[in-house]
Design a binder for these strands. Structure first.
Lengths: 351, 351
DNA sequence: ATGAAAGCGCTAACAC
DNA sequence: GTGTTAGCGCTTTCAT
């Protein structure tokens, strides 16, 4: 009794009962109205919405999730939010998720399996309906845990043998072939490749595609022309100096990602090399910034929007139509070459 | 009955009852154990943890939030996640929040009041315990709504007259004075300022601090030397060309943020100007990338870590000790000059 | 120290 | 069409 009095005294945030009382209907009707059930008469529906408006009411998500078993929460784990590629990805993912009435939980794994584990756990605790692991294939062992918990999961470039898992395949081949072709057309023969860390599936795929493209172009690959970097700007600087210490130097460098290419641009500048006259540089990703480097970076575009949409769609399907027999389990995102200012014909003495 | 059979058949995710049954205790004891209540005997506690382990159980956050009224969720709204300043800020905020057992909801307002409104609403629905609005003072009207809902809120550079609101003040003065001093020491007298959009509190504060610093240095400000940009790289390019079309040109430019400064660097390059010999450039923020521009950018550092920590602490205090009479309502984050390669003495003919 | 039971705000099955 | 009611999984009195 005393409790009730207090409840009246303190203006609590309105709940479904408050609305029902004001609209003079049952709480079931309020619930139905909110959820757009067709079985509510216009007359009552109007009264309910009016009450909702008047009270500035909105439903408690936790209560909803508890009873419905659906949280409308999706998790997205990226490798490092500080890498410009990822914020753009997150933004696209958020946009499409919110448009479909989902909320997202974001985490960076920072390539640390321990962190990934706690990320996953936190997301599981929040009862996410799906997790997009866009770390590009680094931390496989942990992923089994996710699958075990029966949560839909989508991975970039890595197939998990689990009915709840789907995969986004990146078609690097097209873009990388186009890039090598482009360089060959310009007259380059000495083309180097600054690879990503071999702990990453994507890095290995990219490197393999480079080798294949060179072979298709009948261009030899000098052994020392493929060097493993770490997908950071500093890594690009280091990779460049390794290349430059070689007796024969390449006239063009294809990089496993844009940050590496930007590192090369920077290192080349310090060596007083002119890009593209003395060295052609090609990146991969086409981060927003690529347009603004000096010179603007020729690069292989990997659309963050396409990737994010595919990831969301994979999760949505699993969450909303788990019984659908023709659930799409694989998604393909393509790449394409964007020619800007960092590539040109090699200088004659470069031959 | 039929229901129960199904329940047994399908291996449901374990709940508190499952644990209690396995440990042969009541659900209350399980709850107490999980929450570290001292009133549980070692003997039972051990049994409970064992069961938890064995079942790989973890509590349902929604149920917990529903009954306890605490979601352990914090919201952070930034202006644009694509601006490198913000991911760094988000990362720091996430780190400290997670370390304290909170989860975060991230949103970008993209300077659009309508988007901000829905962000706020979504966060309110999720029952966040506090919101950090780090948009730097753009969308005031909407903020009242937040305050109205009795949710703790922390703002950057904007005071809201509400008991639940606190403010983070940025001490630009120190950094900007140091920068002007630095330029004066190098011999500059013709110093321009590329301001941020006047819709931003922070932009106005920065501009005012610049004017004050110039006055203190007894340096005149040419009227046309202060131009309003928009805190983007493109804005910096545009600002530079406006400056360069002037009859007398500045020998140094101080920019309201790093992206603007990077735009100036780029525009200067296109004019075949050498930085810093022909033009000194100073940024503000010290984003990660500032270290890697060509040349490395001299800039005024605004620590994202400090800012994030202050924001979290403000929210935590409001959420956990709302009754504390000496709750801190204002936080100060300082700035400092970082000298790199984009500043030098002006060329003699520049005099 | 432990357990029984009430109830957080909501949805959905069932009754009318 | 609309209302009544039983829980969703948990925390928290209140007994014992």
């Amino acid at each position: 009794m005393a409790r009730k009095v207090i409840r009246k005294a303190v203006a609590k945030t309105p709940d479904i009962r408050t609305v029902a009382a004001l609209a003079k209907v049952s709480i079931a009707t309020v619930s139905r109205t909110i959820n757009g059930s067709p079985a509510v008469s216009d007359r009552l529906s109007k009264r309910v919405w009016q009450a909702i408006e008047q009270l500035n009411y909105f439903p408690n998500t936790h209560a909803r999730s508890l009873v419905s078993g659906r949280s409308r929460l999706l998790g997205i784990i990226v490798e490092n939010i500080t890498n410009p590629f990822f914020p753009e990805l997150i933004q696209s993912f958020e946009e499409v998720a919110v448009a479909h009435g989902y909320e997202i939980l974001v985490s960076s794994s920072n390539s640390d399996p321990a962190i990934l584990t706690t990320c996953v756990r936190r997301m599981l605790e929040r009862k996410v309906e799906g997790v997009a692991v866009l770390t590009f294939g680094e931390e496989e062992p942990v992923l089994d845990k996710l699958a075990h918990h029966d949560v839909p999961i989508v991975l970039a470039e890595f197939k998990l043998d689990d009915p709840k898992a789907s995969t986004i395949l990146l078609d690097y081949t097209t873009g990388i072939h186009a890039a090598v072709q482009h360089l060959q057309d310009l007259g380059h023969r000495l083309i180097a490749f600054l690879a990503g860390p071999h702990t990453l599936h994507s890095a290995i795929t990219r490197e393999n595609d480079f080798r294949a493209a060179m072979q298709d172009a009948a261009l030899p690959i000098q052994k020392k022309f493929v060097v493993e970097c770490d997908h950071t700007l500093k890594g690009g600087v280091a990779g460049f100096s390794q290349l430059w210490s070689l007796p024969t130097r390449p006239t063009a460098v294809l990089c496993s990602n844009d940050m590496t290419a930007i590192g090369v641009l920077r290192a080349a500048y310090h060596e007083s090399l002119r890009v593209p006259q003395d060295l052609s540089v090609v990146g991969l990703d086409d981060i927003d910034f690529a347009e603004f480097t000096l010179p603007p970076l020729t690069t292989i575009r990997l659309s963050r929007t396409d990737l994010a949409r595919a990831a969301f769609e994979a999760l949505r399907q699993q969450a909303e139509e788990p019984a659908n027999p023709k659930l799409q389990r694989e998604f393909l995102v393509s790449t394409s070459l964007v020619v800007r200012g960092s590539t040109a014909a090699p200088a004659v003495n470069g031959r």
